[in-house]
């Protein structure tokens, strides 16, 4: 068996390469918790229609407020929640200290990678969460999109040392 701790950790990965910091999920109860959290999220994603190609078109054509409202209010609620958790010194269920998600500093990787992502989002009208929800909703075309996304992920892994990240 490979020793995870001895494997390469790229300095620009941060939380992206959580090899060093993530505690293993061991119990069935824990697996079930995450499965359930995902189910709730997938349910909301479908019911709010943020997974609809047409909603994404409305957003990028500035024809409807819906997507701006969903993302804006999600950020606001998440922001306030994090503030409250910090102020209250909240800990995780197992009592461990909470690591508030920090992104590695940089400019080019975020602008370039973000633009590539946006191009794909605009074309197929779904980001990774919605792709999965749509597969569940019975749209097999999104299995092809998922295949493309896995190929893109593999390609990034192969080319990353040639790409500007700073």
């Amino acid at each position: 068996m490979r020793n995870a701790a001895s494997m390469a950790v790229h300095p620009d990965d941060c939380r992206e390469n959580p090899v060093m910091e993530e505690a293993a999920v061991t119990s069935w109860a824990a697996w079930l918790r995450y499965l359930l959290a995902g189910t709730v999220f997938g349910f909301i994603a479908i019911r709010s229609e943020i997974i609809a190609w047409y909603r994404i078109q409305e957003m990028f054509r500035f024809d409807a407020f819906h997507m701006y409202g969903v993302i804006g209010s999600a950020v606001l609620v998440a922001f306030v929640s994090l503030r409250v958790m910090r102020a209250a010194g909240a800990t995780a269920l197992d009592g461990s200290r909470i690591d508030y998600p920090v992104k590695e500093p940089g400019v080019s990787r975020y602008l370039l990678g973000g633009t590539a992502f946006g191009l794909g989002w605009g074309l197929v009208g779904a980001c990774p969460g919605p792709i999965l929800a749509l597969i569940g909703a019975g749209m097999p075309a999104f299995l092809v999109v998922l295949l493309g996304a896995l190929l893109g992920t593999l390609t990034y892994g192969a080319l990353r040392r040639f790409l500007p990240h700073a």
């Binding site: 990678g113 590539a116 992502f117 191009l119 794909g120 092809v144 896995l150 390609t155």
Partner: peptide, 11 residues
């Protein structure tokens, strides 16, 4: 479209 999403998200 999928490729750009996967590549862009990791980048």
């Amino acid at each position: 479209g999928g490729f750009l999403i996967g590549f862009g998200a990791r980048y």
